[in-house]
Design a protein around this nucleic acid. Structure first.
Lengths: 122, 122
DNA sequence: CACAAGTATGAAGTATACTATATACTTGTA
DNA sequence: TACAAGTATATAGTATACTTCATACTTGTG
């Protein structure tokens, strides 16, 4: 159980971004039941995990809306087993497509490098 | 040599987006030397190739600025061989990082699917 | 107990990547 | 030759994903 600054440090994500993600429904912390003097929000390790996932997914071009779908399928949210599976299977397909695109790009860039090394125009 | 609407059809990219890419310096067409009655812009197959690359690169999370760097390294642009190689090698590294992230996501989602199938909370 | 540092909230501002609109000119077809 | 369809240009608007700012309250340390 940590406060936002510690979470930000651990995940290496700005506090503002974390607050934005929380407002967007991707993550959520909780206020401590006993405490009434403030409304500080506490986060557990599940949130750290989610942030790690968000970071990776963003890095490969998924939108926050898409990421939210996966996180919702992941961490319950009154969804049926079938609809969760649908979301996850679609993502797996999209991931394979992206891997294919990355491999195609690798080949193209390797060819380009080869051409440059040999002084060809293209 | 094709006009913008044909290029848009071939690449399956909206005309407006193509114009935006041209304004952003990612692609460029040319007016026909002999013609003075209009300023229609013609595009060759190199542009189609570039658009294909842009599409892939965008799909895996590269920004237009990053893509422009690669295209510039690719298609000359008064850059030294060394600086081109630097750009391309960096991209190859980033591509491998992204492939790694995608594989990690695959594993995580597969694990998640397994849990859902077995009725586990996570 | 002063006060720097941390926290919450809301609203406005920014960057990227389009997308739409308005205007005006050009071309091809009936 | 009328006129729909295509093209160019500039400007404004939109969506996403933050980022900054202002305000106000809370907490921990000397």
């Amino acid at each position: 159980m940590k406060l936002i600054s510690q979470l930000a440090r651990e995940a290496n994500i700005p506090i503002g971004t974390i607050r934005f993600y929380e407002k967007s429904g991707l993550i959520s912390g909780m206020t401590k039941p006993g405490i009434t003097s403030n409304n500080y929000v506490y986060y557990d390790d599940e949130v750290t995990e989610k942030l790690r996932f968000i970071k990776m997914a963003k890095a490969v071009g998924f939108t926050l809306a898409e990421i939210k779908q996966v996180i919702d399928a992941w961490y319950q949210k009154e969804l049926t087993k079938a609809s969760k599976m649908e979301v996850l299977n679609l993502k797996l397909e999209q991931i394979d497509t992206k891997i294919g695109e990355l491999k195609a790009m690798k080949k193209q860039i390797a060819r380009c490098k080869h051409n440059i090394e040999n002084g060809l125009s293209r």
